[in-house]
Amino acid sequence: MDNITICIADIAIELKSPLSLTELGIKKRYESFLEKIENPISKVTLTWEESMKHPEPPGRLIYNPGSIWRMYLSGNNYYAAINYINGEIKQTQALLQTNPEWNRMRLKEKRREGSWQSLLNVGAGELLFRTSILFSQGIVFHASGIDDNGKGIVFVGHSGAGKSTQAGIWSNNAGATVMNDDRIAVRFSGNQVFCYGTPWGGEKDIAKNHKVSLSAIIVLEQSKETSILSLAPPIASPLLLARSFLPYWDGTLIEKAVTNLNAIVSHTPIYLLRCRPEPDIIPLVRSVL
């Protein structure tokens, strides 16, 4: 089959695979991101290969966040061994090999019998994107994102903070488009900051291919009393860092993430919104944009 280009946050991921998106079980996830843009900010090549046995990672274990995946280092290459199958710990199903720049990758994957879906659909796809965006002045937040009449609002928060609820409230409002309810990419580019929907949605699985100039980042906190406070960078930045997806296995990548975050924060108003998740919050948020 021909190579397929998946474009997320202006980053072109060229997928080379003997199987089609349908055969890989990832068509639904990526079909709205299959676009060819003239000048992508960066290009990533990803070669998918079938492995007849469970692929084994080489090198030494450098990061083990739990049961789903582990990161190994061998020479200059990183190897992410991904084991996640329906919440159970299994042998490695997919092995993502990447160069240190995260722009040349290979995914070896063992197919399972019956209804099968490549781990590119979730874990492997997300990991490669959220790491490679660090090389394009970007970062991925645990956030929902709204395009409110051309003004991008990113609501960041840990699980349960109200990201999906905000998405629901805004979705019923004229002129507002919900881009994603769980993963938002933000990039600093040419003295401007943009936010983007990604293919990985949350509770409601809202995952639109949508880009808008960023007007504000809002840190969510549930509270009985409603208030919105402007946050200075020294207060805002650590809160945002803790609500982003950091490459904890590599100090150099962490430095990139921090550089990108600092650039974003210095060009974007940040607020703390304490509220109960109710529709009357919209005029309050709009009042600060």
Binding site: G66, A232, I235, A242
Partner: peptide
């Protein structure tokens, strides 16, 4: 790391799992 003017200690590797914070 200097994060927005604050001095932040960010754990790397296995220390992240043990510490779970910044």
């Amino acid at each position: 790391q200097d994060v927005g003017g604050e001095n932040l200690l960010v754990p790397i590797g296995q220390q992240v799992v043990d510490l779970n914070g910044l």
